[in-house]
Structure formats: structure tokens, C-alpha cells
Design a protein around this nucleic acid. Structure first.
Ligand code: SF4
Ligand code: SF4
Lengths: 157, 157
DNA sequence: CTTGACTCGGACAACTGTTGTCCGAATAGA
DNA sequence: TCTATTCGGACAACAGTTGTCCGAGTCAAG
């Protein structure tokens, strides 16, 4: 039960991209976060496949958000990088073994699968309620302004 | 983002153990579910470490639940087998790189970590609300009685 | 009491999924 | 036209999970 570590990087990148109006290259983002440049590229690829960011090739290229910050939820980023399939996968144990339940009686999902599905649903719903804009607002409130300005200047260079 | 598949087996075992008053061996449980006998033993070991079941050695030994079925939650089983640490682990990216935030300004947790923690909390809370007794009640309501009686008889033999 | 067979417990490999890396295709600008 | 720069997907290294095994300890029977 471990979420992909790239989710954290993806969220940070979305926050940074929202702040900078110009395209930002993967190399810049990697240096800013001090993480592997190649691996971050893979995560950005996933975001691009999901349609959250749009990549511009060639000189002065980079990544830009496709939508406004308040239209991108944390769940979008999580599902783009970590996948959409739920953590719990039923293997239909009750249809195996000597006391197997016949398949025609398995029309209704069992209580275990329903419980897990419900928990997964509230988890996703909780993540869907927070948008990138909310994160940005909180970051702006809690981090010193001089650091924010410095980061924006460093990105432009 | 994948939960350990043993969680499903552990829950099934708890349901079965609650139905049978006498100790049940790991071999019986494995044959009933048609799963690897040795691997199920490992999951039962985890349950034993967590204090959910008590093992009796020697002849006519096996596993028994330590508490009543309505005092064991699904979350207990999940945490016993899959671990208690949350899926999201913050690597403190903001304290690295050229635009690092000084450590003394990192006293309050960042919004990303708070969002993930909140989602994990509601997920666990949802699992805590369901007990093994609830699962048993649902199973008794949805499965044909003859199969239940047959399984109980097969366990006794 | 002795014996005996049966039980769980932890230590030991094999496999899938994640992490990390690389170079080629495509593009914008000069 | 040409070049420097960018992303994109294909290629290894690592870790965690899955699966297996045999020995220490124990209860019941004789
Ligand atoms: S009884 Fe439920 S948890 Fe078990 S195999 Fe069937 S659907 Fe999955
Ligand atoms: S800003 Fe939040 S998510 Fe990012 S490293 Fe710090 S605590 Fe973790």
C-alpha cells in the first residue's frame, strides 16, 4: 500500500506551473526540486497523457497547464500519475475451493468488496474537493513573500 | 498504489473463524479458499502479531478470534496485514533545491501533506465503521443457507 | 511419563511493480 | 536551411510483494 512518490512531484510542478505564465522546461523543474531530471520527465509525460498539461517543443518550450488552477483537482493529478484503478482488487475467492458459491448467486457484490469500494470512493471524493488553486492560496499565505518572489525570478532566468 | 492481496484472505478468514467456535488450522482455511497454504500462514502470522487472533499449538490446534466479531473492525485487519503507515509519504521537497525554504519556516505542514492526510483519515474512518459482525450479517443474508451449513460441516470434519 | 505427530513461527527464494536512466524524433527559432 | 533545444517512449536497476520451506514448540493420546 504505497502511493507513487511521483505524485508529490507532480503536484509541486502544477503549483509552480500555475505561478509562471511562460512554459517551463522539465530540467528547470527538476533542478528546482532537486530530483532526478529523467524521472520527473516521466511523470510529466503522464500528466501530458492525462491532458492536464500541454507540452511545447523546441526552443523556449516547456510545459503549461491546460486549464485554470481552480479547475484542476488533486484527484486529477493523483489519478494521472498513480493510476485510476482502486487499491483493492477482489479475486473472487468465494467462487473457488470446495465450498464455492455458484456463479449465478454472485450477482450482488459481496460486503467486503462493497466496504472497500465505499472507502475508496470517500477517499477520492476528499481529494476531489481540493484544487490546485486552494494549494496555491495556502502556499501564498504560509511562505515568506521574498522566497516566492525569488523563486519566480529564478524560474524566469 | 496497490493494497496487499492478503487483506482479502484475512477478512475471509476472520469471517470463517467467527462462525466456527473451535480452532481452525491454517491448512483447512487454505483448502477452503483454494489459496497457497504457506502464504496464508504468513497473513495469519500478521494477524496474530496484531493481537486479532490467538494461535493454539499442538494437536487440535488452530486459530481463534480473541474478541467478539462486533469488536473487530475492517480497519484492524487492513492495518494488521497491509501496515499502518499512510500511502502518501512526504519527502520534504520544499527543503531542497536552490529555492529551499528554511527549516524554521516549515513548522506548519504544507497544504499538500494536509490534503493527503485528510483523505487518508476519512478512508480509515470509513473502514473503521464496518465490523466483522456486519460482514457476517450481510453474508448470512445474501448466501443460500444450505451452502453456509455445508461449509460449517466441512470445517468440522 | 513417553511418545508421537501435529501446530505455528520465522527465515529463505521468485516474481511483479516501481524507480531511475538513456537516446532518438520532432520542433521553434535564428 | 540549419542548429540547438525540447519532449516522448523504449531500456535497465531496485524494492516490495508474493510464494515457499523447514525447524522449534506444544498438546493429546497411549
Ligand atoms: S466474497 Fe467478496 S471479497 Fe471475497 S472474493 Fe467474493 S467479492 Fe471478493
Ligand atoms: S511542500 Fe508539502 S508535499 Fe512538498 S515536500 Fe513539503 S510537506 Fe511534502
Amino acid at each position: 500500500m504505497k502511493m507513487s512518490g511521483g505524485v508529490e512531484w507532480g503536484l509541486h510542478c502544477c503549483v509552480v506551473l500555475s505561478g509562471a505564465g511562460a512554459p517551463v522546461t522539465a530540467a528547470k523543474l527538476a533542478e528546482l526540486h532537486d530530483v532526478s531530471q529523467s524521472y520527473l520527465a516521466k511523470q510529466l509525460q503522464l500528466l501530458s497523457r492525462a491532458g492536464l498539461v500541454r507540452s511545447t517543443l523546441g526552443q523556449s518550450g516547456g510545459y503549461v497547464l491546460t486549464r485554470a488552477a481552480n479547475e484542476i483537482t488533486v484527484l486529477d493529478v493523483v489519478e494521472a500519475i498513480d493510476g485510476v484503478e482502486p487499491a483493492f482488487r477482489c479475486t473472487e475467492v468465494r467462487q473457488r475451493g470446495p465450498m464455492a458459491v455458484p456463479a449465478e448467486r454472485c450477482d450482488t457484490p459481496c460486503p467486503i468488496a462493497r466496504t472497500m469500494d465505499s472507502a475508496d470512493r470517500v477517499w477520492r471524493e476528499s481529494l476531489r474537493r481540493v484544487t490546485i488553486a486552494d494549494l496555491i492560496a495556502d502556499v501564498n499565505r504560509t511562505t515568506p513573500p521574498e522566497i516566492l518572489a525569488g523563486a519566480r525570478e529564478w524560474l524566469r532566468a
